[in-house]
Design a protein around this nucleic acid. Structure first.
Lengths: 250, 250
DNA sequence: AACCAGTGGTTTATTAGATGAACCGGAGTG
DNA sequence: CACTCCGGTTCATCTAATAAACCACTGGTT
């Protein structure tokens, strides 16, 4: 691979990001590189204000500057800006937490969230990594994906997040069929215990999924009797976002 | 400076981030480097899934992966998670948009936002760069900063964002004195025309500002008669966040 | 049609800079 | 006091980053 120093620098950023305040040796150990190389990358990144070091503990962290640069990722910012209005309408219609997730490899990233005034509520921090098979957004995304992609994903190890996560290959495929027939996905406590979510994929002009929206709340409020109503609302929101995205930029 | 290739790679990331879908030549022109060097960085970053290229237009963009990595910056994620609850309470109390901003050099970065159900509302995308002298969050941050920092900042060029932005050095210093006496900051249409905001700084254990919270809404709703009430609420929210941060471990 | 200025991308010799092993001093621990 | 971890440094080796010149292509102008 080319430009090794850049590769190590980026891997350093990713390692620091995962273990937040982290020491030099641990980063070097994780990357398999020498301490000198890692320190070199860290000091360079420090000059660029991407990482900073706590004076007393000597531990390294990512700076707000790194965040400020990366929030403007292409898919992210455009889709998020488009989605805000329909998400707001969905939030008003359901009075529950609304999520927008966009794909990054074989997971989804939580890109935006509108909270509810309820005391009891779903909560996921922005930027959370969401497994496809363990979330309403993910199931909706899978159901809208090409068959070859779904099959390939099902071959991967379906790790369980809670006791109720779908980890069986056959059941997952069956669930995806159900989502396609129903038009929205249902995830009962598969990502967070006590939280039920309904999701729908946002489709691009070619029918390819750009991301997903979902409504999440405590299972005591998101009860089966409401699935049809809320599911319909989620689907309509996803469609509205898709239409708006098509209008704005291919 | 050391590790030039890393420096160019990071500068490429920042350049791409600013101009979103951008071509090779333009990036090379901005950085003053050769196209070969920039392309080298871009292809390496593509392998690392930090940038991606549109097949037809050949333009480059940042990926969601970059966002996913950088969203977990140290100060960001911890302070944001802590702040969510008090921000929610503030949002309920005022029914207006609530912002959380954290410092990055001499500006603030919008780290979190809680929207309102109002049709007419303040809107800033997450990650927005907020000038200190042109925002309620910034004025509150300045008022809580050390005198030497304030003086140094006042020496910089105070660019105007709207017609009502504070650009005069003397008036800014006077405003900061007022903020200190009052306990919260007021910004009337200095950042967005038609939007008035009230802000307060979040203080760390040593009295140093970690960031700011604010309440923003159309000037028709955020009227002077409400300043005292909303200002008090903002101040209390900032204090609650500061206390919670101290409890967790700065 | 011929031209031109722009694009994205490739090749090249040169040399700058990235590398890891061995090392140092300090902090904590048995 | 010995042992082991830590963050950080040094240095000889040689990989890999660099910029200029180049190519092929596209779209607009004359």
């Amino acid at each position: 691979m080319s430009t090794q120093s850049v590769v190590t620098a980026i891997r350093v950023i990713e390692a620091v990001s995962e273990d937040q305040p982290v020491g030099l040796s641990e980063v070097a150990r994780e990357l398999g590189g020498s301490k000198a190389t890692v320190l070199r990358a860290l000091t360079t990144l420090e000059e660029l204000r991407w990482v900073e070091q706590d004076d007393s503990s000597k531990l390294w962290s990512l700076t707000a500057h790194a965040y400020a640069v990366a929030v403007r990722s292409g898919a992210m910012s455009t889709l998020r800006d488009i989605a805000i209005a329909p998400m707001n309408a969905l939030q008003l219609a359901t009075t529950e937490t609304v999520h927008l997730a966009i794909p990054d490899g074989d997971i989804l990233i939580l890109a935006e969230r509108l909270d509810t005034p309820h005391v009891l509520r779903a909560f996921l921090p922005l930027g959370s990594k969401i497994p496809l098979h363990a979330s309403a957004t993910g199931l909706a995304y899978l159901a809208a994906s090409e068959e070859t992609y779904v099959e390939r994903y099902c071959e991967s190890s379906l790790d369980s997040v809670t006791e109720r996560t779908l980890t069986d290959r056959g059941m997952l495929l069956e669930e995806i069929r159900d989502v396609r027939a129903r038009g929205y996905s249902i995830n009962e406590e598969g990502l967070s215990t006590g939280i039920t979510s309904l999701g729908a994929a946002i489709l691009g002009p070619g029918g390819d999924p750009l991301g997903s929206v979902s409504v999440s709340g405590p299972s005591s409020r998101i009860v089966p009797e409401r699935y049809a109503e809320y599911g319909h609302a989620v689907r309509e929101a996803a469609r509205a976002i898709g239409r708006a995205a098509a209008r704005v930029g291919h």
